[in-house]
Design a protein around this nucleic acid. Structure first.
Length: 804
RNA sequence: GCGAGUAUGCUGGAAUUGGCAGACAGGCACGUUUGAGGGGCGUGUGCGGUACACUGCGUAUGGGUUCAAGUCCCAUUACUCGCACCA
């Protein structure tokens, strides 16, 4: 009989929803397991086939954990603030909340049709005032603890979105979202002091179980470097030029200095500079370039010597020139460097172009370093020369010695620097959380009273940002006018909104207690469910979202809100699903697969099975319609197993070993995200059942429970069909007996000189003496007239005879 | 340029510890079911030679360690991802 997936899947989905089968229990005495997937942004395009890859994977683990007796929290929600909805609103003059609501509805239908075991009773939506009340609350706490501050600074500004962007949102010099040109613009912005947490964000990675590459990415992004700040006296003045270097050992080779175009020393010493006009011209030219252009033109370095002033090398006492160049960034270190062309690639390039002296101060053990063509930057084998008291030292020794010397003479101090910048938290946009701050003439920036939260996003009918990059809210004069919560005087509201990262930086906490009106979640819920046991998501979020949410979590830990330092005990990432041509799926390439069509034509179980069978979970793999049909065929064969079903309360002799091995293998594979090999195990089992043309009830039930996490509908239906009154969801995960997974006879390969000749069946754990005669007999032909040099026997593995 | 990863038949991929390379699928071919289009069942399928129960070669390339290497070591190449003048 054919399997009617439409009817069956609907039947079970309705039952699960009605009975709340997968809702987490509020019984805090049970062992818990909290699995998390990245909640989707409800885009107009609907679900992508990539979403279910992650969702199915953790769904499998969640379902297994439930059968193992855990109280499982596997929640879902929507990260619904964001630019696409707003841009759509501007274009079609529809309120973003309407578009968002429609999209969320569509997403929910899609997600439900795939049969995920989400706890829908805890669904969150970042645009819900009951939710963003707490996003605003967290912001106020950050402000109260000095971690939110307002400053005017050059920010990345997208000329097309008309919005300020965080560094993270600028990709290859263009806007991450729209691809528009990004320029620098001075703007007063709310900033979050994530840099205060830089070191802890590195250190605490030791305590969590993330994939190693994720840890590396986080560390690289934070970009810690150890070095020293050194004062270079400016000749004939009482001023110093403070520089940062990670190579204080090369100080004897510093032949010039470079300052960033924005450096304050230029204005401070204006009177002494003889070519001030030229310098000003260079500054203007540099400021016109976006960050991207500055880096893209990296091949050709530009710069101008600042004439009239010279710096003094504190170790050689030589006078060296000071240059201005945009290859030095004002945002890193002190915005000034000592240039050591002989041992730094960039300085080498610059010195060559402007014919500045290059002095070698490091050589290798063989003393055959040649710096005629390029800089010598090796720090492992380097030995100091031409460097006074540090001559002959290794690079490492010299760094220590120089720092000690500078410290004693009070001209330098050891210093750690990070690439990480503070987080630009303002967006000049409508569709985001309003920042709950008011500006009072008398009191400055004052947060709203917590009892007045949430500060609702006002209803407006125009969403276009203002001409000079103002938020659309800046036009809402009635809304802006308010009173100061501190002194009661007249005050104005902040009109910028929060970035999309805000709502996603703490959503996992809300799931623990999603309907609490008195706190972001109750103490008890936080104590019980923290930390998240397993978080899976895309590699594209392993730097920013992960870093931001870890930062917020650490802050909440510091102020006693959450019980753990880190939010996620474990983090894994899935590979992308590509189009059938091996390229990234995109509308323009016409290789997009729509999940709805797959579910409609083949059913959710086939879709889920294929998503898991497609390839190694952590790697990118192309989609294949043919392969999908193979999974469909497999499930049909599972369905038809009832035709060869016989009675039996225990595993039959023929299949006993296979069953125990399968339980072991499938359990291991699920826990280790090796879903593709788990599916192939099931396929092999089905082939075996058909080969012997029978399967008994005990075997079938175990098989169905093992397969259930991947294909929940068909397995529940079959489980019921063969006479069970309880469902698989109410059953226990099967156990196996290790001794029954071991074969008592093995097929031992026999090799001659490492090449396979034949195999022989021998009892398990046979000794070499036992089997030697058998083996010699079996391959006597090949051994005839040969001289046996050596015989190697590895028990239960191999028998290798070395002959001459 | 720096960091990380990947490389196995016609294709997706297996091969927990160095021990029978190619599991499981897809595709293709042939057969079969006296019913045809993406139907079911079965057989075959790494490449080459062939006396077809035999044999040579084979896991990106070149070397090495080992009785034994897809797996370990060294070098090289190609592709993917992330970062990119961070001193």
């Amino acid at each position: 009989m054919a399997y009617n997936f439409k009817e069956v899947e609907k039947k079970w989905q309705t039952k699960w929803e009605k009975e709340g089968t997968f809702n987490a229990k509020n019984d805090y005495t049970l062992p818990k397991w909290y699995g998390l997937i990245e909640f989707p942004y409800p885009s107009g395009q609907g679900l992508h086939v990539g979403h279910p890859r992650s969702y199915t994977a953790l769904d499998i683990i969640a379902r297994k954990k439930r059968l193992e007796g855990y109280n499982v929290l596997y929640p879902i929600g929507f990260d619904a603030f964001g630019l696409p909805a707003e841009n759509y609103a501007i274009k079609n003059n529809i309120h973003p909340s309407i578009v968002t609501e429609q999209n969320v509805k569509h997403f929910k239908e899609q997600l439900k049709s795939i049969g995920f075991s989400f706890d829908w009773s805890r669904e969150v939506n970042t645009t819900d005032p009951k939710y963003y009340k707490w996003t605003q609350w967290i912001f106020i706490q950050l402000f109260k603890h000095g971690l939110a501050y307002k400053t005017t600074m050059p920010i990345n500004y997208c000329t097309s979105c008309k919005v300020g962007l965080a560094n993270e949102e600028v990709v290859n010099g263009v806007c991450e979202r729209c691809g528009g040109e990004v320029i620098q613009k001075e703007k007063s912005q709310w900033m979050l002091k994530i840099t205060d947490y830089a070191q802890r964000l590195i250190d605490d990675l030791d305590d969590v179980n993330y994939l190693e590459k994720i840890k590396i990415q986080q560390k690289n992004w934070i970009g810690r470097s150890e070095g020293a700040e050194v004062k270079f006296k400016i000749d004939g003045t009482d001023k110093n030029l403070l520089i940062y270097t990670t190579r204080p050992d090369t100080i004897f080779g510093a032949t010039y200095m470079v300052v960033a175009p924005e450096h304050s020393i230029i204005d401070e010493l204006k009177d002494k500079i003889t070519n001030f006009d030229e310098i000003e011209a260079y500054k203007t030219q540099a400021s016109k370039k976006s960050d991207f252009e500055r880096t893209e033109l990296s091949k050709e370095k530009t710069g101008v010597e600042i004439k009239g002033i010279k710096a003094v090398n504190p170790l050689t006492n030589e006078l060296i020139p000071i240059w201005i160049s945009d290859y030095v960034l004002i945002t890193y270190g002190t915005g000034a460097i000592m240039a050591v062309p002989a041992h730094d690639t960039r300085d080498y390039e610059f010195a060559t172009k402007f014919k500045l002296p290059i002095v070698q101060v490091i050589t290798n053990k063989e003393n055959n370093v040649n710096i005629d063509k390029e800089a010598y930057t090796d720090t492992e084998d380097g030995i100091l020369i031409n460097s006074g008291f540090i001559n002959g030292m290794t690079v490492k020794e010299a760094i220590k010695a120089v720092i000690k010397y500078l410290d004693e003479k009070k001209i330098g101090t050891p210093k750690v620097n990070y690439k990480l910048r503070d987080w630009v938290f303002s967006r000049q946009r409508y569709w985001g959380e309003p920042i709950p701050m008011v500006h009072c003439e008398k009191c400055g920036w004052v947060p709203l009273d917590e009892k007045d939260l949430p500060l609702l996003l006002p209803e407006v009918d125009e969403f276009l940002p203002g001409e000079n990059g103002e938020s659309p809210l800046a036009k809402q004069t009635d809304w802006i006018k308010t009173t100061c919560p501190h002194c009661g005087g007249p005050a104005e509201r902040e009109t910028d909104t929060m970035p999309q990262w805000a709502g996603s930086s703490w959503y996992f906490l809300r799931y623990m207690d999603a309907h609490n009106d008195n706190a972001l979640a109750s103490k008890e819920a936080l104590e019980y469910w923290s930390p998240i046991d397993w978080y899976n998501g895309g590699m594209e979020h392993t730097t920013l979202h992960l870093l931001y949410s870890r930062f917020w979590h650490k802050f909440l830990y510091d102020i006693g809100v959450v019980p753990t330092k880190e939010p996620y005990a474990k983090r894994t990432s899935h590979g992308m699903i590509l189009g059938n041509n091996g390229e990234k799926m995109s509308k323009s390439k016409g290789n997009v697969v729509n999940p709805d069509e797959i579910v409609d034509e083949f059913g959710a179980d086939t879709f889920r099975t294929y998503e898991m069978f497609i390839g190694p979970f952590d790697q990118s793999t192309p989609w294949s319609m043919e392969s999908l049909r193979g999974c469909n065929k497999f499930l049909d064969r599972v369905w038809n197993l009832t035709e060869i079903l016989i009675d039996g309360d225990t595993y039959s002799k023929d299949f006993e070993k296979m069953m125990h091995k399968a339980i072991k293998k499938v359990s291991y594979d699920y826990e280790n995200m090796k879903f593709n090999t788990a599916v192939s195990t099931f396929m092999t089992m089905v082939n075996e059942f058909y080969r012997l043309k029978r399967i008994n009830k005990a075997e079938f039930e175990t098989f169905l429970i093992l397969l259930n996490p991947i294909a929940p509908h068909i397995t529940e239906e079959l489980f019921e069909k063969i006479g069970n009154t309880q469902t698989i969801a109410q059953s226990k995960w099967p156990t196996f007996d290790e001794s029954k997974t071991i074969d008592d006879e093995i097929e031992l390969p026999i090799q001659i000189n490492g090449k396979l000749k034949t195999t022989i069946c021998v009892p398990l754990d046979s000794t070499q003496d036992d089997i030697k005669p058998l083996i010699h007999e079996k391959i006597s032909m090949a051994l005839e007239g040969k001289n046996i040099v050596k015989e190697i026997y590895v028990k239960n593995k191999i028998y290798n005879i070395v002959i001459k």
